[in-house]
Simulated scan of single mutants.
Amino acid sequence: MFTCIESPYGGADPKKLVDLEASRGISLPDDYRTFLLDCGGGSLIENTIDAIARDEGYFEIRTLHGIDPQNGVLFSDLDGMQDCYEGAVPDDLFVIGSDHGGNLFVMRLASPHTVFWWDHETGERAKLAAGFSDLLERVKPTPPDPPECDFTSWESLPADWQSEYRRSVCECAAMEGRSDVIEQWASLGRPFGESMHFAAMNGNLNVVDLLISLGEDINQPCSDGRTPLDWASFQEDRVSALRERGALLADEQTN
């Protein structure tokens, strides 16, 4: 039994496997035939594989299709999958699985039976493994999501940490009102970016005051020309507090 496979199907009927090959005029690799006879299809318990032919990234295998699976779903059936993608997937490739986005895992029918990830919209390929057995040997657990920064201490923050919005530690600290982190950032001589804008928008006046004391302009425009007050203009209480500190809207500034 393939220990990395979680299969609800059980082994494929040998006759149905022979019929599949005969009806399509193909001969499947021995290791893949053994998998079908043993498991009949299923999902990988460890389902992530790095791309061989890419500089970065990995792929998750949602399912490996079977022969006449018990749930009767077309897109879990090997024969149905070949019909579905006929004319789209090149004739020398055989669909063996899918990911969560509807993209495919395909195997070259001729030796050396290379396995690829195949984009169902663009036809882009990425080489994953030299063959089916190699594919199973290369899978591993999906890497966990990186922990979110909790700003508990400066030491806990990697210097190049960025949020999902590609913001610096300093800008994220401004969102959180963490003046202590910003003081540490300033001691390293690094740019503040749009920290004043984020502090103003979130009403973190302690950070606004700190940035002013560090020489930042409360009316410095961001990349699209808006000032911190523009970012905070939807909150009346923040607007009044910022105006007390000399903040102006972009269209109020004189050239």
Rank of each mutant, 00 (worst) to 15 (best):
E121F: 15
D134H: 06
Q253N: 00
S187Q: 11
A126L: 04
F132P: 01
D145H: 01
D180M: 02
A174G: 08
S153F: 05
D19R: 14
S168A: 01
S7K: 11
D230A: 04
S23E: 15
W118Y: 14
H100G: 14
D224W: 06
G131F: 05
M1E: 10
P8T: 08
A186K: 11
W161P: 01
I212M: 11
E176F: 05
S156C: 02
T142P: 02
F59T: 07
D230I: 07
M201S: 11
K127C: 02
L44G: 13
E137Q: 07
S168R: 00
D224T: 12
R54A: 11
H197D: 07
M175E: 13
L157A: 02
A126P: 00
E56F: 10
H100Y: 12
N219M: 09
A159M: 06
E164F: 04
G189H: 06
A247K: 00
V95F: 12
I5P: 05
L109H: 12
V169H: 04
D31W: 08
I61W: 09
A173D: 02
G41Q: 15
G131A: 08
P228E: 06
S163L: 07
N202P: 03
P228A: 12
H100V: 14
Q253Y: 00
D134L: 02
H65I: 09
R62P: 08
I182M: 05
G246M: 01
I218L: 05
G225P: 05
F151L: 11
V89A: 08
N47Y: 09
F35C: 09
R178S: 11
G11R: 15
W117V: 06
M201Q: 14
V115K: 06
